[in-house]
Amino acid sequence: MNRIFAFVFARGGSKGLPGKNLLPLGGIPLIGHSINIAKALPQVEKVFVSTDDAEIKKVAEQYGAEVIDRPAELAGDKSPEWDAWRHAIRYLEEAGEEFDIFLSLPATSPLRAPMDVDAAINALDGNTDAVITVTPASRSPFFNMVAREEDGSCRILSPSNGYSRRQDAPEAFDMTTVAYAVRKQFILSSDRLFGGRVRSVLIPKERSIDIDDEWDFVFAEALYKRTRQ
């Protein structure tokens, strides 16, 4: 049987929304929401928070997660999270911790439901290296998304399509940070997520908010209050 470990990657710095990972939503810090979901899933054996920040470490431990010390060079604005994933795996392997399925639950998606994470885990079959979560996009690169130059001129992102109506364009989806279920060995052997066989699980918009800036947080607060009345 596959052993599943859950991870929350939460660095201290955030330009879009300072202190983002510890912001309280409904009285619970964002990383607390991710930890609580992971601990509520019976198939998840252990929960880890990878961080470079002392306060995040303290809060993670208060919510019952184990902490992985994240090196500063893997915690910058331009540091690929894939490298932090690899570091966490190797850190645990050196500590003698063996597992099969790597489950990432970013703190930026606090409105996820346990069934959303269950769906991602269950979709990771023998023909799949990784499962991502997606939600219907409000815009399509085939019809109404453009690239804009400094002088204001713009062009359609996918000009060679010939679609004249939005309804005729292929349906597009936004990747969400609800969950990533990935085979551990795939992370160690590949240099990118889409270097393997990737499947997706569809998440409703009301549970797929990805908090990146202040307005995202305001929207998340409104949805959180509405769904818990």
Score class of each variant (00 low, 15 high):
Pro106His: 02
Ser164Tyr: 06
Ser79Arg: 08
Phe99Ser: 08
Thr108Tyr: 06
Arg86Thr: 07
Trp85Val: 01
Asp69Arg: 15
His87Val: 12
Met115Phe: 09
Phe99Asn: 12
Lys78Asp: 14
Asp69Phe: 12
Glu97Lys: 12
Val131Asp: 02
Leu103Asn: 15
Phe99Tyr: 13
Asp151Ala: 06
Thr108Pro: 00
Ala95Arg: 15
Leu157Pro: 00
Asn161Cys: 05
Ala119Asp: 01
Val134Leu: 12
Gly126Ile: 09
Asn122Met: 10
Ala107Ser: 15
Ala119Glu: 02
Glu149Arg: 12
Leu105Asp: 03
Ala84Cys: 07
Ser140Ile: 08
Ala95Ser: 11
Thr135Arg: 05
Pro80Thr: 01
Ala95Leu: 15
Ala107Asp: 03
Arg90Phe: 04
Ser104Thr: 01
Thr128Val: 14
Thr133Gln: 05
Ser79Tyr: 04
Val117Cys: 04
Pro114Met: 13
Glu93Asp: 14
Asp151Tyr: 06
Glu94Phe: 08
Met145Lys: 11
Trp82Val: 03
Val117His: 03
Asp116Trp: 05
Asp100His: 15
Ser104His: 15
Arg155Ala: 13
Trp82Ile: 05
Val146Ala: 02
Ala113Cys: 02
Asn161Lys: 12
Pro106Asp: 12
Asn122Glu: 15
Ala130Asp: 05
Tyr163Asn: 00
Leu124Val: 15
Thr135Val: 05
Pro114Val: 01
Thr135Glu: 07
Leu111Gly: 02
Gly126Asp: 12
Glu73Met: 06
Leu92Asn: 03
Ser160Ile: 07
Thr108Lys: 15
Ser164Ala: 11
Asp69Ser: 13
Ser109Ile: 00
Arg139Val: 05
Ala113Lys: 03
Phe102Ser: 06
Ile156Phe: 06
Pro141Val: 11
Ser138Arg: 10
Ile156Tyr: 08
Arg148Lys: 14
Met145Val: 03
Asp69His: 15
Leu103Cys: 07
Pro114Tyr: 12
Glu93Ile: 03
Ser158Thr: 13
Asp116Phe: 06
Asp118Pro: 00
Ala130Cys: 14
Gly126Ser: 11
Asp129Gly: 12
Asn161Thr: 11
Asp116Met: 04
Leu157Thr: 01
Phe143Ala: 05
Leu103Phe: 09
Glu93Asn: 09
Arg112Ser: 15
Leu111Gln: 02
Ala119Trp: 02
Asp83His: 03
Glu93Val: 00
Cys154Phe: 11
Pro110Glu: 06
Ala119Lys: 11
Thr133Glu: 07
Ala84Ser: 10
Asp118Ser: 00
Pro110Ser: 10
Ala75Gln: 10
Ser160Pro: 00
Phe102Tyr: 13
Asp77Cys: 02
Pro71Phe: 14
Val131Arg: 06
Gly126Glu: 08
Gly162Thr: 07
Asp118Arg: 00
Leu157Asp: 00
Gly76Cys: 03
Pro136Ala: 10
Ile121Phe: 13
Thr128Leu: 04
Ala123Lys: 10
Glu149Pro: 00
Ala72Met: 09
Glu150Asp: 07
Ser104Lys: 05
Asp83Ser: 03
Ser164Pro: 00
Ala130His: 07
Arg165Met: 11
Arg139Tyr: 08
Arg139Trp: 05
Ala147Met: 13
Val146Met: 04
Asp83Asn: 06
Gly76Trp: 05
Pro141Met: 10
Val117Asn: 02
Ala95Val: 04
Pro136Tyr: 06
Ala130Pro: 03
Ala120His: 06
Ser140Lys: 02
Arg155Val: 11
Phe102Asp: 03
